[in-house]
Write a protein that binds this DNA or RNA. Structure first.
Lengths: 208, 208
DNA sequence: AATTCCAGAGAACAGTTGTTAACTGCATGG
DNA sequence: CCATGCAGTTAACAACTGTTCTCTGGAATT
C-alpha cells in the first residue's frame, strides 16, 4: 500500500518538478550532454547537492523528461487515428492536433527532437522505446481500419513507422516556424497536410 | 590569385583536418554543444591555443564539419534520382546507395542526424541550408521526370521535401542497425524499400 | 642575405564543473 | 512525546574549462 503522501513527499515532488522545469528551460538553447547539474540547481535556487536526492545524473533527469514529454501522449493516438467522414478531414484534424500540441508544449517537443539522436545513450533509448510504443499503437489502430484488409503484418508495421516519423517531422517543422510570419506557418501546415495526403493515396492503392 | 600553396599552407591544412577528424571522433558519444576546444586539441596533440588559428569556436568547427559531411554529397543526388528500367529497381538502388554511404561514413551521418536539431544554432542553420539545397536539387530532378506532368510547383516541392526527410530517416535507421545482427539489418533495408515504394505508389495516383 | 610573417607553444588567469563529507531542521512513525 | 528518517545546506576538493599575453622557430617575401 502506498504510504500516506504527507507534506514531506509533496515538498520533494515539488522540488523534483522544479528541477525538471528548470532543466527543460535550459535545454532550449543547448543539448542534454552539456547540461550541468549545478546549472540546474542554480536555476531552481537550491544547493547543488540537493540534485542527488532526485536524480543520479543529468542523464537520469533526461530519461525522466522523456517520460514527461511522451508518456502522457499515448491516449492522443486513438483520437488522432480515429476515422472521420472525409479522409482529408482526418488529415486536417491530425495536423491541427499536432500544431496545437507544439504550440502548447514547445519545450517538450524540442527536447524530444533534439535528444532523439542526441549524445546521451540512455535518453536515446528511452525515446526509441516510447516511439516504438507509439508505432505499435498506431499499427493496432490501423488494423481496425476497413482499408487495411489484406495488408500483411509487416506492411502495417511499415506504415505505422512511417506515420510516427512523419508526425515527428511535422512537429519539428511546426516548432521551427513557431515565431515565423503567418504566411510561412500556413505554408508549413499546407505542406504537412499534402505529405500526409500523399501517404494516404499510396495507402489506398498499395494492394494493386 | 591564390598564393603558391607552399609547405606552410599545407601544414596548416593538415592540422586543421586533424582537428576536424578528432572532433568528429569525439562527437560519436556526445553533442557538439558539450565539445570542449581543449578536448579537441588534446586529442590531436597540439596546444589549446593553436585551435584559434583555425576556428573561432567549436560552433565554427561544427559548421565546417557540416560542409565536410554534406557538401560533397550533392553530385550523388542525380545518380540517386536517375530513372531506371523498373521503378522498384530505382528504389532498391537508392536504398543500397544510402546503406553504402552510412557504412562508409558513419561518423558524418551521425553528426548530421544529431546536430540537425542540436543545441548549436549556427550548425543547425548550416544543416538546414544544405538540406534545402538537396530539396531543390531533388525537385529539379523530379521536374524532368515524365510522371511529373501536371504537377504544381508546390506539390513538387512537397514531394522533394518528403524524399529528403525520408533519406535522413533511412540513413539514421541504418546507422542504428550498423552493429546489429544480420537479420535485423535486412529488415531495416526491407522497411526502407517499402516506405519508398508506398510514396512511389502515392506519387503515381496523386492526380486522381 | 636580411626581414617579415605566422602556426603553434607555454604559462597563467578566473571561473566552472561533479562529488565527497559532515551538518541541520523538520515531518514522520512508534 | 520522543527517536528516527531524510530533504536540503554548507564547505571544501581536484580537475577542468575558454581566453589572454608573450614568445619562438622556420617558411615566405623582399
Amino acid at each position: 500500500m502506498s504510504h500516506t503522501p504527507g507534506v514531506r513527499q509533496a515538498q520533494k515532488q515539488k522540488t523534483r518538478q522544479a528541477l525538471l522545469d528548470a532543466a527543460l528551460g535550459l535545454l532550449e538553447e543547448q543539448s542534454l550532454s552539456s547540461l550541468g547539474l549545478r546549472e540546474v540547481t542554480r536555476a531552481v535556487g537550491v544547493a547543488p547537492t540537493a540534485f542527488y536526492r532526485h536524480f543520479h545524473s543529468t542523464a537520469d533527469l533526461g530519461v525522466a523528461l522523456v517520460e514527461e514529454a511522451l508518456g502522457s501522449l499515448h491516449p492522443m493516438i486513438r483520437t488522432t487515428m480515429a476515422p472521420a467522414e472525409d479522409d482529408d478531414e482526418r488529415i486536417a484534424r491530425a495536423v491541427e492536433l499536432i500544431a496545437g500540441h507544439v504550440a502548447a508544449h514547445p519545450a517538450h517537443v524540442r527536447f524530444v527532437a533534439r535528444e532523439r539522436h542526441g549524445g546521451v545513450q540512455p535518453v536515446r533509448r528511452a525515446i526509441r522505446e516510447q516511439l516504438a510504443r507509439f508505432a505499435e499503437e498506431v499499427q493496432a489502430e490501423l488494423a481496425t481500419d476497413a482499408s487495411a484488409a489484406g495488408w500483411s503484418e509487416t506492411d502495417l508495421r511499415m506504415l505505422a513507422g512511417l506515420y510516427v516519423d512523419q508526425m515527428l517531422i511535422t512537429a519539428s517543422l511546426f516548432l521551427e516556424t513557431l515565431d515565423a510570419p503567418e504566411d510561412e506557418r500556413r505554408r508549413a501546415v499546407e505542406t504537412a497536410r499534402r505529405q500526409l495526403r500523399l501517404i494516404s493515396v499510396g495507402r489506398r492503392h498499395w494492394l494493386d
